[in-house]
């Protein structure tokens, strides 16, 4: 099957700091890829470059064979409309009620169709396990876990084909984290979405992933099916999966 997303030779530096140094990555349609890697390894930057929020220094990103790097105007808007993203901190618009947040992509920020949009928001809230009354609250009135679920609802409300999740379970208790994992899995399995998830929560990675890739020192140093995670034979992956302080990753940081 042709790749939905094919990233090749992607590099990005912020001043003297080289964040990505030639990332190659392929995701098939309907596949759930989880990217693991230490804090500050450039995972979020990678997603933002694919979305066109940050310009890469070099490299190519193909979406169904169409080059995204350098895309502008309407063509870029059309490509972006196929993506949905859950941001690390939720990034909910605090001036708008929850239901306007959830339907923001559908109305493109416009008012109107209030009743239909409100009803739709309530339906999507139910999908992420939240009651209808949440729809009329402001984001600031919600707990962190609820904000995350509302942000997830906002990311999936417009039914995008490709979903990005940036640390979807960080800051949640294990039970809530597991409901989020199940929701993400459902988007991929039931709705056929293609997903890329960034995490350093290994329990989450095992639940969500079809395939796992590890980003280290600006490169993908290992990738394979989730079943191969424990027998990768890669010392970096081994250290990360088992959360050991000693190993090649620690050496890389201190050295």
């Amino acid at each position: 099957m042709a790749d939905r997303i094919a990233v090749s030779g992607l590099t990005k530096a912020f001043g003297p700091k080289h964040v990505l140094e030639g990332v190659d990555l392929r995701v098939a349609p309907g596949e759930s890829l989880v990217i693991i890697g230490g804090s500050g390894s450039g995972k979020s930057v990678l997603l933002k470059i694919i979305l066109g929020l940050i310009k890469p220094d070099a490299g190519s990103i193909l979406l169904d064979g169409q080059e995204l790097v350098g895309l502008k105007g309407r063509a870029q808007e059309a490509a972006r409309a196929r993506f949905g993203m859950l941001f690390q901190g939720g990034a909910l618009f605090d001036s708008l009620p929850v239901w306007r947040n959830i339907t923001f992509a559908l109305t493109k920020g416009k008012l109107g169709e209030g009743k239909a949009m409100h009803a739709l928001a309530v339906r999507v809230l139910a999908q992420v396990g939240l009651e209808a009354r949440v729809a009329d609250l402001k984001p600031a009135e919600l707990s962190g876990g609820m904000q995350k679920r509302v942000a997830l609802a906002r990311a999936i409300a417009a039914k995008p084909e490709i979903l990005f999740f940036d640390e979807p379970t960080t800051g949640l208790d294990p039970i809530r984290a597991d409901t989020i994992n199940a929701l993400i899995r459902e988007q991929v399995t039931a709705l056929g979405a293609t997903a890329i998830t960034i995490t350093h929560d290994m329990a989450s990675a095992r639940k969500i992933a079809d395939r796992v890739a590890m980003l280290q020192d600006g490169k993908i140093i290992w990738e394979g099916p989730v079943s191969a995670l424990d027998s990768s034979g890669n010392p970096y992956v081994d250290q990360f999966v088992h959360g050991r302080a000693e190993g090649p990753v620690a050496t890389a940081i201190t050295g």
Binding site: L92, D94, G109
Partner: peptide, 9 residues
Amino acid sequence: QLDAMVTLR
């Protein structure tokens, strides 16, 4: 939130 807005078309 600014990045999120862009991804929300």
